[in-house]
Design a protein around this nucleic acid. Structure first.
Length: 408
RNA sequence: GGAGAGGUGGCUGAGUGGUUGAAAGCGCUCCCCUGCUAAGGGAGUAUGUGGUAAUCCCGCAUCGAGGGUUCGAAUCCCUCCCUCUCCGCCA
């Protein structure tokens, strides 16, 4: 949610910024709604004030019938005014919840991912003396269509060595972030309510990407640990000294992936269920830029320890997600595709989620909104896939990255 | 799942229809006093939002959430959520 004060004061700045991500901010509509709101609110509050005064008079002048009649009709009026204001307020809320975050100044302007900018390429690409296999070659051998049998397509079974490797990768990531990077480990619910999803920005706009638990329930499977972890302190006022809070959380993630039919149908790249180690930070607004840089370093470190070639990419304005102000993707090398593929997305959400989740800290100025950040550190399934591809051997097998050897 | 109790400000805790946004205590901030410390005295101390550009001023809202009764609700009624105790079940 954007700052209402900014929206009122300079809608044209907002409009210009948001147009860079292809969002048309209807400032006429906004100004109209705000004017309606102001009239309705002032009207209600004036009538309420008079009614309050009248009520006090009644309490003093015991049972004055004419005063009571007057108050009664005023009360009816106030009730109507409340309904009017409420309906306007609902429209405003709906309008505001639909607006994406402002794009950071440093983000390249462009329509889509073709305008993303490569910041840096790290690590040497593997040089195979044979035709490298796709990771799905290894996965298919263990899954054999059973994920689809048990659940549906885009679910996968791992067995034996691959199941173990999958488990160990997550373990290694958490250990690195807790021991070396100072994150606190969390275990959280894998089911979240609507309020939490509104807080981080998945709702109301992106319901179709989620798995909902039953028609009547307002519970959903987590699409990412970002949701439970960022909402950990929702509606709280943190102490200044607590900041920054740094959490790491390994969780399964469930995404319905509606609208992605035909993309990445093989292997582990795009699944309805996958594991991810998520990094979340809650910090002072002045610090979010530098915390973002450090977050990216922390996530990158995993790829470096695993000795996987990767690159850093800054997403263009048009490719940046709804809640983010700036996003840096880490993309890992997939030899079989001769391409880099996303394995982590590190975003600064500024105060966008904090406003939705009412997440504040106490400062000398009063209560201020925190800034939130998160990034995958990393997606476990895709990491497994990247290891299989980059560490494969000519005999249709693979070896383990050095750092994982004492885990296996 | 069954039976009962309860949800009030940073915390403890009063308050069962009318100057109660809310007693009291603790905590916190500032000032005074005491050669330091301890103790004592005084003042202040919720949030959100609107009128306004405004930390002043004035208003409105907020006592788990949402509805209802009433001129008026923290107080009465209904629904939901949560916490606690006992019983049942269970990893």
């Amino acid at each position: 949610m954007l700052d209402k004060k900014l929206l009122i004061k300079s809608p044209e700045i907002v409009k210009k910024n948001l147009s860079s991500r292809g969002y048309i901010f209807d400032d006429d509509q906004w100004i109209k709604l705000e004017e309606e709101r102001k009239i309705a609110q002032v009207n209600l509050e004036t009538n309420q004030e008079n009614l309050n005064k009248l009520s006090k008079e009644i309490s003093k002048s015991k049972d004055d019938e004419s005063l009571k009649d007057q108050a009664s009709s005023l009360s009816t009026l106030v009730k109507q005014d409340k309904e009017i204001l409420q309906s306007i307020q609902n429209n405003i809320d709906e309008f505001l919840l639909d607006i994406p975050n402002l794009i950071d100044k440093s983000v390249p302007v462009g329509e889509d991912e073709s305008s993303n900018e490569i910041i840096e390429e790290i690590g040497d690409l593997p040089n195979f003396s044979f035709e490298p296999k796709a990771h799905s070659f290894f996965i298919d051998k263990t899954d054999e269509g059973r994920g689809a049998k048990i659940a549906k397509s885009r679910f996968t079974v791992l067995s034996g060595e691959l199941a173990k490797l999958h488990r160990v990768i997550g373990q290694f990531m958490i250990d690195t972030h807790t021991n070396d990077h100072g994150y606190e480990e969390l275990y959280v619910p894998y089911v979240v309510n609507k309020t939490s999803l509104v807080g981080t920005g998945q709702l109301p706009k992106f319901e179709e990407d989620l798995f909902k638990l039953g028609e009547k329930s307002d519970l959903y499977l987590v699409p990412t640990a970002e949701v439970p972890v960022t909402n950990l302190h929702r509606d709280e006022k943190l102490n200044f000294e607590q900041l920054p809070l740094k959490y790491v959380c390994h969780s399964p993630c469930f995404r319905s992936e509606a609208g992605s039919y035909g993309k990445d149908t093989k292997g582990l790249i795009r699944q309805h269920q996958f594991d991810k180690v998520e990094l979340v930070k809650i910090c002072h607004p002045d610090k979010s830029e530098e915390e973002h840089v450090k977050l990216i370093e922390d996530a990158s470190k995993i790829l470096e320890l695993l000795e996987l070639p990767y690159r850093k990419v800054v997403l263009s304005s048009g490719d940046t997600g709804f809640s983010a102000s700036k996003t840096i993707d880490l993309e890992v090398w997939f030899p079989s595709q001769n391409a880099y593929r996303e394995i982590s997305s590190c975003s600064n959400f500024t105060d966008f989620q904090s406003r939705r989740a009412n997440l504040k800290f106490k400062s000398k100025k009063g209560n201020e909104f925190c800034h939130t950040l998160n990034g995958s550190g990393l997606a476990v399934g895709r990491t497994l896939a990247a290891i299989l591809e980059n560490y494969q051997t000519e005999d249709e097998n693979f070896i383990y990255p050095k750092v994982l050897k004492n885990y296996i």
